[in-house]
Amino acid sequence: MKKIEKSFFIRTFHINGLLILISLVLLLVRVSFILIESLLQKETIPFLTEYTGIMTKVLGLISNTLDGMILISVATLLILVVPELVLRIVHDSLANWIYSIWVSFRLRKFLMRQADHEGEGIFKLQQHNKAIRKSIIDIKEKKITYFVKLPNDVQAQKLLLESKEILREEISSLFPKFTFSNFDRYKHWLRIEGTKIR
Rank of each mutant, 00 (worst) to 15 (best):
residue 193 E to S: 11
residue 96 N to F: 04
residue 98 I to N: 00
residue 80 L to Q: 01
residue 129 N to P: 01
residue 155 Q to H: 11
residue 181 S to E: 10
residue 169 E to M: 09
residue 44 T to G: 08
residue 182 N to K: 12
residue 97 W to K: 00
residue 176 P to E: 06
residue 82 V to I: 15
residue 134 K to M: 11
residue 186 Y to W: 14
residue 183 F to T: 10
residue 133 R to S: 07
residue 92 D to V: 05
residue 178 F to M: 05
residue 61 L to E: 08
residue 47 F to M: 06
residue 61 L to V: 12
residue 2 K to V: 13
residue 56 T to Q: 13
residue 81 V to N: 08
residue 66 L to K: 05
residue 138 D to H: 07
residue 75 A to G: 05
residue 79 I to W: 12
residue 5 E to H: 08
residue 121 G to V: 05
residue 67 D to M: 11
residue 164 K to C: 09
residue 65 T to H: 07
residue 182 N to A: 14
residue 103 V to Q: 11
residue 83 P to C: 05
residue 41 Q to G: 12
residue 197 I to L: 13
residue 180 F to K: 08
residue 80 L to W: 05
residue 12 T to G: 05
residue 95 A to C: 04
residue 6 K to Y: 06
residue 51 Y to D: 06
residue 17 G to A: 12
residue 161 L to A: 02
residue 40 L to C: 09
residue 76 T to D: 05
residue 42 K to H: 11
residue 85 L to K: 01
residue 155 Q to Y: 08
residue 29 V to R: 10
residue 116 D to K: 07
residue 33 F to P: 00
residue 100 S to E: 00
residue 152 N to P: 07
residue 187 K to A: 11
residue 178 F to W: 03
residue 148 V to I: 15
residue 194 G to M: 02
residue 124 K to R: 15
residue 4 I to V: 13
residue 193 E to R: 07
residue 184 D to E: 15
residue 177 K to P: 03
residue 154 V to F: 13
residue 54 I to L: 11
residue 10 I to P: 03
residue 192 I to C: 04
residue 130 K to L: 13
